[in-house]
Design a protein around this nucleic acid. Structure first.
Length: 269
DNA sequence: AGCGGATGTACAG
DNA sequence: TGTACCTCCGCTT
């Protein structure tokens, strides 16, 4: 689940249920018990996302910094909360709602200063309205690294994950192995604009859909399909299957310890 | 029961 | 470049 859209949606969902309400805070699994005891009974004062990082504000006590990593999960539910399973790292409860966090890479109580430091090591985020794409362009346009690797580098641009990377490059017909410095300004502007649009829709729907209406199977005269990861996509994990646009076999390759997916015909140098 | 992955990152060398 | 870490699920035996 967790690319940037998931985390921004989590911030919204935490605000809707817990903002300005005193919450019971616990760590059934135990790894966050000391901080949980400190926060227990305090109101949630803010919830904010930057890229794949989530920050839950507890006033002067600081922020709970959460990163889901690859496996982390968040489950919301009503009250009364069921008995927690033994992997629940963090549980928030009010008389009306609860939320459980499992398997995060990071769950730590941090200060304002530490939070600032996290923001400073992250690049602009297409989902933060004030973030400046020119800062991404400044680095991308000077780099010999492939555009595919650059899009996953959170110091350069925050929030893009393996699905959005594959899909935005497909939608713009860009070969993933082109160097950042060979991307034109017009192409970069289109990448950023497309990420803003796709990721906003991702927050709205809580899933990733990237296939344009004219390429949906019904529009292409093919039977409806179901992608096994929740949304409709062009190339992500569709290797060895036909491209939805041209029919060429979608390819996959390892790139910097991640699987890359692309259509060699639609995405040309 | 045991395995291999997975929308991620950090660190070692 | 490889490896470790967090958890769950689906596939194979």
């Amino acid at each position: 689940m967790p690319e940037g859209h998931t985390i921004h949606r989590l911030a919204e969902d935490h605000r809707a249920r817990f903002l300005d309400r005193p919450v019971r805070v616990s760590s059934p699994q135990g790894k966050f018990s000391d901080a949980a005891a400190l926060l227990d009974g305090q109101p949630l004062t803010d919830a904010e996302a930057h890229g794949k990082h989530l920050f839950l504000g507890f006033g002067a006590l600081g922020w709970v910094h959460i990163h889901l990593g690859l496996f982390g999960k968040v489950d919301f539910g009503d009250a009364p909360a069921p008995p927690p399973t033994d992997t629940v790292r963090l549980r928030l409860t009010t008389p009306k709602a609860h939320v459980d966090l499992r398997g995060p890479t990071t769950c730590a109580l941090i200060t304002d200063g530490e939070k600032t430091a996290v923001h400073e090591r992250l690049g602009p985020d297409p989902l933060r309205p004030d973030d400046d794409p020119d800062r991404v362009w400044a680095r991308l346009s000077r780099s010999r690294t492939t555009v595919a690797a650059l899009l996953l580098d959170q110091k350069i641009i925050a929030g893009v994950g393996n699905v959005y990377r594959a899909e935005v490059l497909f939608r713009l017909g860009i070969d993933p192995y082109r160097a950042g410095r060979d991307i034109t300004r017009a192409e970069w502007d289109a990448i950023w604009a497309d990420l803003v649009e796709l990721m906003r829709e991702g927050v709205r729907n809580n899933r990733i859909d990237t296939v344009r209406p004219e390429h949906m199977p019904e529009a292409m005269g093919r039977p409806p399909r179901v992608d096994d990861h929740g949304g409709e996509v062009y190339v992500y994990r569709r290797d060895r299957r036909p491209c939805h646009v041209c029919g060429t076999e979608v390819r996959t390759a390892g790139l910097a310890a991640r699987n890359l997916f692309w259509c060699p015909a639609c995405q040309r140098r």
